[in-house]
Structures are given as structure tokens and as C-alpha cells.
């Protein structure tokens, strides 16, 4: 059974189609890298999967239809890390991570010790346990990134959605955060769907890549198949060269457009 299955998924804003006719199925443990130019529909696709925007078509998570799930059940199935999370600066890190337990708590219920244990373990796993009682506002950019990830992981959902997860980080931190997600994917069989700006990173971490253009899926497949000079040049409107480094990993290099014909 697919971890995530999209059939005829379409989203429109005020009558203008933002996504249209998306069909895709992901096996558990897949990392799908969503790529595409700005405005291609990457964020919209992710937001539709957690019902932050209304959609037509069918989305199934673990076989259950997303539209029929209660908000709470959906949050137990799909965790979402937005591009720019809203941070309550005065909240302590441990309390922030514990918010991820919300889908498991009744309306009026308080957190149970087990919920706090989950939060604390995740902080430790992400190397933040020393900062557990610090306010969120006192953490560095990289620490915050891991903290938000920890909150999403605290939802213990089989599907993790990441919207441009590393855009705010410097290079070293980017790789670190993605390595972490990848480890967890391997350990827990997480299915990851990540909108990725950095094509090189997409090539290195994604097991499958889907290229979106004007709300349509135009190419899907392994990174090797999709990330090619021709495809990228066509859909990103830029000239790029896809190289391989010494380890055999993909590297996407933009090519400078020289004035005049050569």
C-alpha cells in the first residue's frame, strides 16, 4: 500500500488553477523532492496534503482519504514543517516541541508525562537537550530549524512534509538538517515530501524527484532521470550543467549566460 497517493489532485485560487491533474503514489520510506521554478505549485501541493487549502481529487494517506479524516487524525498521519514557522519567542524549547503532541491530546486534556518524554527524546536526538529550557527566541537559526523539525517529528506521523526546509540556513547547516531527516527516514520508514530549492541537495537526498511547472507534474523519476541539463534548462528558464562529483553525487551548476553568440 502506498504511504501517500494523489489522484487527480487540483487546487485553484479564486478560479485560477494553481495545481491540476496531479497523480502520484509514494511507497513508504520514499523521499520525494518537489522541484520547480517559483510559483510552480510546490508549496500549494504540500498545503493541500494537510488541508490548509481546499482541493479537488483524492489524497490518501496510509489508505485513508485525507478529506474524510478529522483534523486530529490527519495530524497524526501527516506532519508539516512550513517554510517560515511562526515562533513564540518566549516559549521554552521543550514546550515548543511538546506542541507536536497536540494531535494525541483531548480538547481539554493536559500533556501527559509520556508526551513530554517523546519531546525530550527528540530534543536529545537532535542535540538540543541542553537547550530544553531556553526560550525559543534565544536559539540560533540552526537550532530553531532543528527545533521545528523536532516538533513535527513529535507528531509521530508516517508522512513528513517539508516546505523549503533549509532556505534560512547556511550551507553546513543545510546538509546537517537534511542528513538528520534522512537518518530518520531510514530508521523509521518515514515518507518525506520536501519542496526543494537547491537542486544539488535535491539530487543528493531525494529518492524520487517530481518536477512541477505551472501547476502540472511534468517529469517524475529518479534524480538521475529528471535532473538533466535539458529538462532543467527547459523548465527553469536557465542554462545549467549537471555534473557528478568524485563520489558520484549530482551537482547542478548554473551556467553564466554570456552576451552574444559564441
Amino acid at each position: 500500500m502506498s504511504a501517500l497517493e494523489l489522484r487527480g489532485l487540483a487546487v485553484s485560487y479564486d478560479g485560477v488553477a494553481a495545481l491540476c491533474g496531479i497523480d502520484y503514489a509514494l511507497a513508504p520510506g520514499t523521499w520525494l523532492g518537489l522541484i520547480g521554478a517559483n510559483g510552480a505549485g510546490k508549496s500549494t501541493l504540500l498545503r493541500a496534503l494537510v488541508r490548509l487549502v481546499a482541493y479537488q481529487g483524492t489524497v490518501r494517506v496510509g489508505g485513508a482519504e485525507v478529506a474524510r479524516l478529522s483534523r486530529r487524525r490527519l495530524a497524526q498521519q501527516v506532519a508539516f514543517v512550513p517554510q517560515t514557522p511562526e515562533l513564540p519567542r518566549e516559549m521554552r524549547a521543550i514546550d515548543y516541541v511538546a506542541l507536536g503532541r497536540t494531535p494525541y491530546l483531548g480538547y481539554f486534556a493536559a500533556e501527559r508525562p509520556a508526551d513530554r518524554r517523546v519531546g525530550h527524546e527528540l530534543l536529545a536526538r537532535l542535540g538540543l537537550d541542553a537547550l530544553a529550557e531556553r526560550p525559543v527566541g534565544a536559539l540560533s537559526g540552526g537550532e530553531v530549524q532543528r527545533l521545528v523539525l523536532a516538533r513535527a517529528l513529535a507528531q509521530e506521523a508516517p508522512v513528513l512534509l517539508l516546505d523549503e526546509p533549509t532556505s534560512a540556513l547556511d550551507l553546513g547547516r543545510r546538509v546537517e538538517a537534511l542528513e538528520l531527516v534522512d537518518q530518520l527516514r531510514a530508521e523509521r520508514g518515514l515518507t518525506v515530501v520536501a519542496a526543494m530549492h537547491d537542486l544539488t541537495l535535491a539530487g543528493q537526498f531525494a529518492t524520487e524527484v517530481a518536477l512541477l511547472d505551472h501547476g502540472r507534474l511534468v517529469r517524475t523519476g529518479t534524480p538521475d532521470a529528471v535532473l538533466t541539463d535539458a529538462e532543467l534548462g527547459r523548465y527553469f528558464g536557465a542554462s545549467v550543467r549537471v555534473l557528478r562529483d568524485d563520489d558520484g553525487d549530482l551537482v547542478v551548476v548554473p551556467r553564466r549566460q554570456r552576451g552574444g553568440p559564441s
Binding site: 494537510v50 487524525r73 495530524a75 508539516f80 512550513p82 506542541l99 507536536g100 497536540t102 500533556e111
Partner: peptide, 17 residues
């Protein structure tokens, strides 16, 4: 507790169920 959840904004609170 729910008011604390709302401190992350409407969208994130929604995605938390």
C-alpha cells in the same frame, strides 16, 4: 493549553490538529 498551541499561528495550529 490550546491557547499555547495557537501561539504558533493559525496555519500551524491547524496542521497540529
Amino acid at each position: 493549553r490550546l491557547l499555547d498551541v495557537l501561539r504558533v499561528g493559525e496555519e500551524e495550529a491547524t496542521s497540529l490538529g
